[in-house]
Design a protein around this nucleic acid. Sequence first.
DNA 1: TAGACTATGTATAACCA
DNA 2: TTGGTTATACATAGTCT
Lengths: 184, 184
Amino acid sequence: MGRKKKTTMGKQKIEMKKLENEDARHVCFSKRKAGIFSKASELATLCGAEITIVMDSPAGSPYPFGSPTINLVVDRFLSGGLALPTMGTQEACRLSLVQELNHQCMRISNQLDAAKKRRTMLEDRLKALVESNQQVRKVENFEELNPVEFKEMEQFLYGLKEIIHFNIWKNLSGGPSTSNSGKM
Amino acid sequence: MGRKKKTTMGKQKIEMKKLENEDARHVCFSKRKAGIFSKASELATLCGAEITIVMDSPAGSPYPFGSPTINLVVDRFLSGGLALPTMGTQEACRLSLVQELNHQCMRISNQLDAAKKRRTMLEDRLKALVESNQQVRKVENFEELNPVEFKEMEQFLYGLKEIIHFNIWKNLSGGPSTSNSGKM
DNA sequence: TAGACTATGTATAACCA
DNA sequence: TTGGTTATACATAGTCT
């Protein structure tokens, strides 16, 4: 009826720079995060795309998102070795991880050469990793790590990182596009 | 001036289900992907958040996005062990990976207990992995993998996955929220 | 901290080049 | 495939609960 509407300012244009006010920053993150997750969900539905997102809030808390499943974030990391390259979202959605692996088993004969190379590389890297890890293990207390020993730990982590890096970006380096804001 | 404007239909509401037409699907993916990446970039700037996204196009091509750097997708996988939890985007942007590690070194004394547990766990898992890997290595030709041997390879991959899984989701399980559309 | 509200800014469906 | 246009649907900044 004749209910008087309260009128507010409505959306204003804002400058694209870091919000100085901490509360505003948190609110903005929370709202926009929801918006992006929503958009991502829509895109996954409309186009059958697989999407994984991880956001760190300004406070440092991680917020993961995955469609069709949140485990895709992890699954992709192994898919480099034994992928089912053109499998659509709908099918993947219906298959458990184990079933997917069985599926891959059936398709592997088409990827033998690449798989062999990757496997050898993984094994070599893993062995090198374990050797450096042996050195690190001599240190009993983390508190006592001196700069040199920390360097070893660093090397260990770098090695692990290389394995992961290898699995993720192998297929991406020749991919269609690479977006990032900021340095590589 | 009196220029007659061509009038189009403008944006129409669409039903939220998979687009049947393949061309429309590709166009939609391309445009919405750009939109989401743009939104993600804005969020990173406004809130100093760290964001990583990987999208698989309907055709199966991966499109990665990272802000402040695309390498964050990889970096997070190690950050579980030696994180710099509240470091903002702006600062991270200016630091190389090596500098970041040094930074972490300085802050590590605040995280000793958790770090020790994680390190032990990683080492145990890695050792178990290598043992199972030894078995796998007995197979000289990938072509000859029988179901049992493939099972071993599968175990090896699962083990690797667990390490990764552990690093990613350790902090998330108790985290503030977990979003996904579809099954876990 | 999380949910409404509303006016406005922005993304995007349809169409064309 | 990418880019431009228009009209509309949708997201969201500011504000109050």
